[in-house]
Simulated assay, not measured.
Amino acid sequence: MPALCPCGQDLPYAACCGPLHRGQATASTAEQLMRSRYTAFVMHDAPYLQQTWSLTTRPASIDFPPGREWTGLEIIGTTGGSPFHSEGTVEFRAHYTTAGTPGIQHENSTFTREAGHWVYVTAL
């Protein structure tokens, strides 16, 4: 049985975030984009992260902290961000360990549409 997608959905990667990462699909909601970006961090997929980052806030490069292992994602809540919205927020907790020490990244991230596609803007 294929491994479940790191984003927390009860689907294998190939049927969940994989098509987004391969450019075969685009996120239909801000939450779906958030989940696919979390999975991209797990997999160190810098090109996908760059592609899904707003042109207004995109960094020149993506750094992955050495020794950080992402261990789980909790979606706390969303506002807007549906297929019918042009903006939205996703509040989440991303769990990780660094050198065996657990940590949590808690954010309320903003998303918007650019050229019809959801992109990450910034954390509130």
Rank of each mutant, 00 (worst) to 15 (best):
Y38L: 05
Q24N: 01
F111R: 03
I62F: 12
D45L: 14
T97A: 13
S28D: 11
T29S: 14
L73C: 15
R37A: 09
A3T: 06
L4D: 06
F84E: 11
Q105L: 12
G88W: 11
Q32P: 02
T39Q: 03
S36R: 09
T110I: 07
G8R: 07
A14S: 13
L124V: 09
A115Y: 00
M43T: 05
R113A: 05
W118D: 02
L4S: 08
I62Y: 09
L33I: 07
A25F: 00
T71H: 09
L4R: 14
V42Q: 05
A15E: 11
I76N: 15
G8Y: 04
T29H: 08
G77V: 13
C16E: 06
E31R: 10
P19C: 06
Q105V: 09
G8K: 07
L124I: 12
D45P: 07
Q9M: 11
F84T: 15
R22S: 10
L33T: 07
F111D: 04
R58Y: 03
G81F: 10
S109M: 06
I62E: 15
G100Q: 05
A3H: 11
I75W: 13
Q9G: 00
T110A: 11
A46L: 10
P102D: 02
A46Q: 07
G100Y: 06
T97G: 02
A46I: 12
I75L: 14
Y96S: 13
S82P: 04
I76M: 14
G67K: 10
R58S: 06
T71P: 09
R37T: 08
G116E: 08
W70N: 13
Y13T: 01
L4M: 10
T97Y: 01
E114L: 10
H106Q: 15
T52V: 05
G8P: 08
G18T: 03
G103T: 02
Q51C: 00
D63K: 10
L20C: 09
E74I: 08
C7W: 03
P6Y: 01
